[in-house]
Design a protein around this nucleic acid. Structure first.
Lengths: 236, 236
DNA sequence: CAGAAATTTTGAACGAGTTCAAAAAAGTAC
DNA sequence: GTACTTTTTTGAACTCGTTCAAAATTTCTG
C-alpha cells in the first residue's frame, strides 16, 4: 500500500475491453481463492495480459478491491429493489435492506476482512471520516438515501437529511460484526440486525418528537462536525 | 501481512538483550522516520543484527507495531496517574485521561494511521471484536477499569462492569477522529473530546437512573453479545 | 495511405516482508 | 573439559506489490 496512483481512464474501445477483462478475472479469482491467493501476477496471467498492463488500468491492488466493493454494492442495490418497492415503513425497508446486504456479502465472507482493513486506511474512500466525494462511497450511501426518501415516516428535515449517512455508518458496523461472526449461517449477525433495526426505529421516532428538537439539533451539529474532516487545514 | 507467527519467547539473557535492542531500535526509527521508511532491513542494520534475527524475535512487522502500541500505552498510563490521583468525579477523570491520550499520541500522528489499519485486521488484538484475551488489549482496557473503579460516581453494577469496555471503545473512536484531524494543534479533536465527555457523563447519569433499569439491562445484554465473538463456533 | 501522436502492452527490475536451512554460540550434563 | 542439546544468528532466496522505459499497436491528421 505504497502508492496512490489512480486507475487510468481508458481512451479506446480496446482499452475498455482489456480493463473489463482484467476486472472480471480479478473478481472471479477473489471469489474463488480469497485475497491472499489472488496476486496481481495471477490475475494478469489468467487474464492473458502482462503484469504491467494490469497496473496500467488499476493503479494498485486496492483499486481492484474498491472495484469489488462497487460490484457487490450494485448487486445489493439490485437485490433491494423489490423490497423497497413493496415496503413503505422505514423499519421494514431497513430490515430488508440490511438482511439482503448480508446475503449479498456472504459468498465473500472469508476474505471480507481485508475490505475493512483498506477501509481503515485514512486514504480509503470507504473510510467513514475521509473525503466523501469518492464515488464508491457515494454509491453505497445512495441506497440509504433511497431507503429514507421512499419511506412514509414523518421525520424532521434536519434528521432526514442526515439519516442516510447515519444508516450507512450503522451498516458498516453491522458488516464489521458479520466479518467476525463465527456462528452457524451467521445467525448472530441476523439476530443482531433484527434487534438493532428495532432499536433504531424506536430511536428515530423518539428523536423526531418535537420536544427533542434542541437535543437533536445539537447532536446533529456534532455529527456534521465529525463528518467530512477533509475540508479545512487551518481551523484553530 | 501474510504470516501470523508469534514472537518467540527468549530463552536466554543474551536473547532477552537482543530482543530489547531490536525493539528499542524499531520504536526509535518508527518515531523518527515514520512507518513506511522503517523497514525491517533498516531496523536490523541499525541494531547491528541480521534481518533473520529480527524475525526470530518478532514474527512480523505487525508485532513491532503492537509493541509500539504497548509502549505508548504504558506512557499514557504513567502520565494519567497524577490526574487519577487528584480527580474524583468520573467526568473529570475521563476528560484528563482522554486529553492525555492525545498528548501522548501526538508525536506519532503521521504514522498512526497504520495502527488503525492493523487494528481493523480481524486477527489483530486491537480489533474491538476479536479475542479479548490478547495482552495488548487487556492492558489498554485496564486504564479504564482504574478510571471507573476510582470514581465516586454512583453507577449501577451492571453498567459499572461494562463501562470500561465502553469507554475503551469510545477512546478508540476518538483516536480514529484524531488520525484524520487536520486542524492546527489538533484543536478539533480536543474540542470533540470536551463535548463528548460532557455528553457521556450526562448519558451515564441518565442510564443510572433506576427508571432506566429495564432499558439499560436490555442494552447491556446486547453489548455483551457484541463483544467477545471468539467464544463459540456453533451457536445457531 | 504515410507519418505523427496517443494509447496500450510488455518485460525487466526494485524494494520490502517473509521464510528457512544451516552455521555459530551458548548452555548443559557427565 | 568434552560431547550433547538448545538457542541465537546468519545470509541467501522467494514472493508479491509496484514502477518505468521502451516496444508494439492503434488512432488521428493531412
Amino acid at each position: 500500500m505504497k502508492s496512490a496512483r489512480k486507475s487510468t481512464a481508458t481512451k479506446t474501445a480496446k482499452g475498455e475491453q482489456t480493463k473489463a477483462l482484467i476486472l472480471n478475472t480479478a473478481l472471479e479469482m477473489l471469489h474463488e481463492r480469497g485475497y491472499e491467493n489472488t496476486t496481481m501476477r495471477a490475475i494478469a496471467e489468467k487474464a492473458g495480459v502482462s503484469l504491467g498492463n494490469a497496473y496500467h488500468y488499476f493503479g494498485s491492488k486496492d483499486h481492484l478491491i474498491q472495484a469489488f466493493y462497487h460490484r457487490v454494492n450494485e448487486d445489493h442495490l439490485r437485490a433491494s429493489q423489490p423490497a423497497l418497492q413493496k415496503e413503505s415503513s422505514l423499519k421494514a425497508r431497513l430490515l430488508s435492506v440490511m438482511r439482503l446486504k448480508i446475503d449479498t456479502l456472504e459468498p465473500y465472507h472469508e476474505f471480507a476482512g481485508v475490505l475493512f482493513q483498506t477501509a481503515a486506511d485514512p486514504h480509503s474512500p470507504l473510510n467513514p471520516f475521509a473525503h466523501a466525494a469518492a464515488p464508491v462511497r457515494r454509491d453505497s450511501i445512495k441506497l440509504f438515501e433511497d431507503l429514507v426518501a421512499g419511506s412514509k415516516a414523518r421525520i424532521p428535515d434536519d434528521l432526514r437529511s442526515e439519516l442516510p449517512h447515519l444508516l450507512w455508518l450503522y451498516h458498516m458496523g453491522m458488516i464489521l460484526f458479520w466479518i467476525h461472526d463465527p456462528s452457524r449461517k451467521r445467525a448472530r449477525t441476523y439476530r443482531l440486525i433484527d434487534q438493532t433495526v428495532d432499536l433504531l426505529d424506536k430511536l428515530i421516532s423518539l428523536a423526531s418528537n418535537p420536544l427533542m428538537r434542541p437535543v437533536r439539533k445539537k447532536a446533529l451539529k456534532m455529527l456534521l462536525d465529525l463528518r467530512d474532516l477533509e475540508a479545512g487545514e487551518a481551523e484553530d
